[in-house]
């Protein structure tokens, strides 16, 4: 199953780099020459520890953070450097759902008005009644009572708030949505409700998701394809079933072993020691070499490129056979 080769990808990142400056003035390479293609109507799951650059990449695709080099194409048009009218047009097609609905909603605004705000911006031609009707319809489809229109975020539970955030993102019918850890702050039972809802809306609207999470169970369940990120680089990509049943990169293997879903019994268990290195001082060679149980001299000196490794799969490790 390789959807990407047949059709033009919806999102394409070519050698994208993004940096931050920290307080001491040193430059942090949050995203380091990332190449990525996200196809229409797929859910691309991006997984990695905190500090691996997942969210930064998501923000750059949405033009919420400037890229330092490289280019990002959305539907064939450049996202990087977009301003004014073009940018507004882009925003209509791309939306984001944040991790913490306690922080992403305005505490002093009725949720109806918050959901309606995007309509005010993108559809000024709509009458008040039309807008109200659209909001009610949206509330319904995210499973909220329309009487909640006049509530404040503080009156809602965490799950309800996340539903509001979803309604807010989807009311203008975008084609691409970045879900940045949308269920990480929720209880397991509520998490399942929200994951089901996101899937239902995706099927109804033909949406494309970039699903960012550090929870491998969530990613393996939702994503069609998985990208594993470590210290600003993508170390492995491939179809979800293949990556979860036969992870190639030692880091991916370690992550899957930790999550307790080891399906490949022939493989040696990988235990990831220590913590992710400070991105201001990234290690030489392979970024993962400091924690890799299979590290050799070559890994310390030479950075592996992301290369094809089987059907629709790519991996950046010196010891994974190329194909």
């Amino acid at each position: 199953m390789n959807i990407c080769e047949s059709s033009r990808p919806l999102v394409e990142c070519i050698d994208v780099c993004g940096t931050y400056k920290n307080r001491e003035g040193s430059i942090i390479h949050a995203v380091n020459s990332v190449n990525l293609r996200i196809c229409r109507t797929e859910t691309f799951g991006l997984v990695g520890e905190s500090g691996s650059g997942k969210s930064t990449l998501g923000y750059m695709i949405l033009n919420l953070k400037k890229t330092d080099s490289g280019s990002i194409l959305f539907d064939g048009r450049p996202v990087t450097g977009c301003t004014g009218k073009q940018e507004k047009e882009l925003r209509r097609c791309m939306q984001i759902i944040f991790q913490d609905p306690y922080l992403s909603l305005d505490p002093k605004m009725h949720i109806g008005s918050q959901i309606q705000e995007s309509l005010d911006i993108f559809h000024p031609e709509m009458s008040r009644e039309q807008k109200k009707e659209t909001v009610d319809h949206m509330l319904n489809s995210v499973g909220l009572d329309i009487r909640l229109r006049h509530s404040l975020p503080s009156e809602l539970s965490g799950g309800q708030r996340q539903r509001v955030a979803i309604a807010q993102a989807l009311i203008i019918h975008p084609s691409f949505v970045v879900c940045d850890e949308p269920v990480s702050s929720l209880d397991v039972s509520i998490q399942a409700q929200i994951l089901n809802l996101l899937q239902k809306l995706k099927e109804e609207d033909g949406l494309t998701y970039l699903f960012i999470s550090h929870n491998l169970n969530v990613i393996a369940y939702t994503a069609d394809r998985i990208g594993v990120m470590y210290l600003g680089t993508i170390v492995e990509t491939g179809p979800s079933e293949d990556v979860s049943s036969h992870p190639l990169h030692p880091y991916t293997q370690g992550l899957f072993d930790l999550s307790g879903m080891v399906s490949d019994k022939n493989r040696k268990h990988v235990v990831i020691q220590g913590e992710i290195p400070d991105p201001a001082f990234p290690p030489s060679g392979c970024p993962f070499h400091t924690r890799c149980p299979f590290c050799t001299d070559r890994c310390i000196n030479e950075k592996p490129e992301l290369q094809t490794a089987g059907d629709g799969r790519m991996c950046a490790c010196h010891f994974v056979p190329k194909s």
Binding site: V188, S189, Q191, A192, L195, N217, V218, A220, Y221, T222, S240, E241, S244, S245, M261, S263
Partner: peptide, 11 residues
């Protein structure tokens, strides 16, 4: 509670 945990085989 057990059923609501997402996993690869529930895809």
């Amino acid at each position: 509670l057990i059923d609501s945990i997402p996993a690869a085989d529930k895809r």
